[in-house]
Simulated scan of single mutants.
Amino acid sequence: MLKLTFLGTSAGVPTKQRNVTALAIECLNPHTSGVQQGSRQQNNQSKKSRPWVLIDCGEGTQQQLLHTKLSLHQLAAICITHVHGDHCYGLPGLLASAAMSGRRESLTLIAPKAIATLLEAITATTELYLPFAFDFIAIEEVLAEQDDTNKVSISLSDQHQLDIDITPLSHRVASHAFGITQTISRRILNTDKLVADGIPASALWGKLQQGEDVTTEGNRQLRSVDYVDNEIQRTRVVVAGDNDAPNLLSKAVINADLLVHEATYTHEVLNKIQAKNPDYDPMHSSAQLLGEFAQGARLKNIILTHFSARYQGFDNPNSKTPNMAHIRLDAESVYKGNLWLAADFDQYMVDGAVELASDQEGSQEEMRVQYIGSARSD
């Protein structure tokens, strides 16, 4: 399962209610000791087993983190969608704070090459010292790979894998979407079959569950594959950077549980902006444009974010003041799935489909996306 915490949901500049873009995604393993099944809000899994990924890091992101329980020591990777300041100006300060808090573990950074240049310049000019190594992965180099995998894999444990794939988007500068796919596998021992086959509970059961073939005291050969099912849970969330062409995500959202995408304006406002200055296109999506794509792609769940500062946080369709109702209605006019409008510190839990490797038909549980409240700890 993936737990999303929105740290910033404003476009371009912060407002009194919204910071600029940043999204934390915690990679939770429900089979890890300490996780309470059936109680997402009271999930008290050990912090050390709650690695998380940061998508974009606008100015003030580290300040937003202070209102949550997220720790920079468990941060596994940072992904920057593009080089516009509202998506990356907070990165140097966050890294400096991680160093001052005692972090020493290496950190994966997936970003445009220009971000490396930015960090090199700040390091040199401000004498910034970072006592941890970077695994810097340039987006341009990943996309240029001949094998066309466009994917970075991070092993969180022997049964917990995170894959991050990259999709180019359309914006005034090179912008990208990150597909976050968490795969959790576990071996389930078929105890009923063991008992039926006359194999009593013993240490052999544990070895079978660990994938070992064993021999009983009666010299009977037992194969692990005959008594163990491999259960696999995959959860996939696609998070897009700034983008005026949602159709570019058509391939990326196949089998996605959730799409997080900007909806900077209503369609009416976007058209007015483009008409007022034909020589300048903000190259953002309207809520309606994103809704049309999501409906056509049969996406069940979308979260809109990155709202222009002109839209106030309240929801009143009858108000002449631009507000969230106008964004919501713009999307709902064309989209009939599950729709949320993100606010700072909103948290969502995403449970992916579960399947048994031995199930040839690939039967799955229906995935779920649930709003679980605010992350603010004060």
Rank of each mutant, 00 (worst) to 15 (best):
M100H: 07
M100F: 03
M100E: 08
M100Q: 13
M100Y: 02
S101L: 15
S101I: 14
R103D: 11
R103Y: 07
R103L: 05
R104N: 15
E105R: 13
S106K: 11
S106E: 07
S106A: 13
S106I: 02
L107G: 09
L107F: 05
L107D: 06
T108C: 13
I110D: 06
I110Y: 09
I110V: 06
I110S: 03
A111V: 10
A111E: 12
A111Q: 12
P112C: 00
P112Y: 00
A114H: 14
A114D: 15
A114Q: 15
I115Q: 02
A116M: 12
A116N: 14
T117Q: 15
T117C: 14
L118Y: 15
L118P: 14
L118E: 15
L119P: 03
E120D: 11
A121N: 14
A121I: 11
I122W: 11
T123D: 12
T123A: 12
T123H: 10
A124H: 14
T125M: 10
T125R: 12
E127Q: 12
E127T: 12
L128S: 04
Y129I: 11
L130D: 01
L130K: 00
L130C: 01
P131V: 03
F132Y: 11
F132Q: 05
A133P: 01
F134L: 04
F134G: 01
D135R: 04
F136L: 05
F136M: 04
F136I: 05
I137G: 01
I137Y: 00
I137A: 00
A138G: 06
A138R: 04
I139C: 06
E140S: 07
E140W: 06
E141T: 04
V142H: 05
V142G: 06
V142M: 07
L143W: 00
A144Q: 12
A144D: 13
A144R: 12
D147Q: 13
D147I: 10
D148W: 08
D148E: 15
T149S: 11
T149A: 08
T149W: 05
N150R: 14
N150C: 11
K151S: 02
K151Y: 02
K151I: 04
V152S: 04
V152F: 04
V152P: 00
V152I: 05
V152Q: 05
S153H: 08
I154W: 03
I154T: 01
S155H: 10
S155C: 08
S155V: 13
L156M: 01
L156C: 02
L156W: 04
D158P: 09
Q159L: 09
Q159E: 13
H160G: 07
H160M: 08
Q161F: 11
L162K: 01
